[in-house]
Design a protein around this nucleic acid. Structure first.
Lengths: 145, 145
DNA sequence: CGAATAAAAGATAATAATATCTTTTTATAT
DNA sequence: ATATAAAAAGATATTATTATCTTTTATTCG
């Protein structure tokens, strides 16, 4: 339902948001170590996030990634769109096959509810909310953090 | 969260359960066509289901798969165990890394609730329940079914 | 202007899930 | 005993996801 890529992106954006509040840019190496994700793959993911307007970036000395006022207000749902695209919104156990509430698969009722609940949570959570939770130590971005 | 393999297995077991009520065995070719799943791969999945005691099987002329009184009473959760194993029970966006309610990842609350709700539904649904729903045309096992 | 930093991009590889193909084994019917 | 049917099992292939490596481009600083 949710890819590992999305999980990496969620942690990455949250980490960058936390550090942006200190006026700092986060470079890829620091980010990779901070959220315990392979750096080369993370670089790819960050490109998609920048391309989709979720984060800002700059090359060169003192370069890196950061969030601005605008992106802090974005719902976490934008991260899902940047990594997994729209297909997950209607994903189901039937995969690509037609499955809906009038032609449901064996687990449709529960699965669709589950999926929609999760996606609603992402729509209702701003990136700034996630950063606040990290600062309040309510959520963690890596194991030994 | 839930694999395509599990989705195939759920439909397969349900299909076999429906046809067992007619006192029939279902062979692999019929089953593959009935639920629209690639036959060779399905054969593999069925072996695990038989090995785990979810279904019965017999080789040779008139052979195939069937459910008995015992297996009809099994919760659908047994299908999940046969296909995806135990790791999914505690799966999270952090993957294999330690994540729990005292050291939660960014989406842990929603994700764990979602996962547990889905798994509870599987625990509380018997294979016979699924077969009944197919017969009542409340759920479908393939698109043009 | 050039060196160093650091993201961006392209190419390639590894792994896991899904899928296919071939052979073996088992069971029944004649 | 043999042929046929059909599951079981092993081997292999494809696809998608995750991951790594190399090169290019952009930016800053001295």
């Amino acid at each position: 339902m949710l890819s590992k890529t999305f999980a990496y992106a969620l942690r990455a954006v949250t980490y960058v948001a936390v550090h942006s509040k200190e006026g700092k840019k986060v470079n890829l190496e620091q980010l990779s170590e901070g959220i315990d994700v392979p750096q080369p793959f993370l670089g790819k993911i960050m490109q998609d996030l920048v391309r989709q307007g979720v984060l800002k970036s700059m090359k060169g000395p003192g370069g890196g990634f950061w969030t601005d006022e605008y992106s802090l207000k974005l719902p976490a749902f934008e991260i899902l769109k940047a990594t997994d695209g729209y297909a997950v919104l209607t994903s189901c156990l039937m995969g690509k096959k037609n499955c809906n509430s009038s032609l449901p698969c064996p687990l449709h009722a529960e699965y669709a509810l589950c999926r929609d609940t999760l996606f609603d949570a992402l729509r209702n959570t701003r990136i700034s909310d996630l950063a606040q939770k990290v600062e309040a130590k309510e959520i963690f971005l890596a194991e030994d953090n």
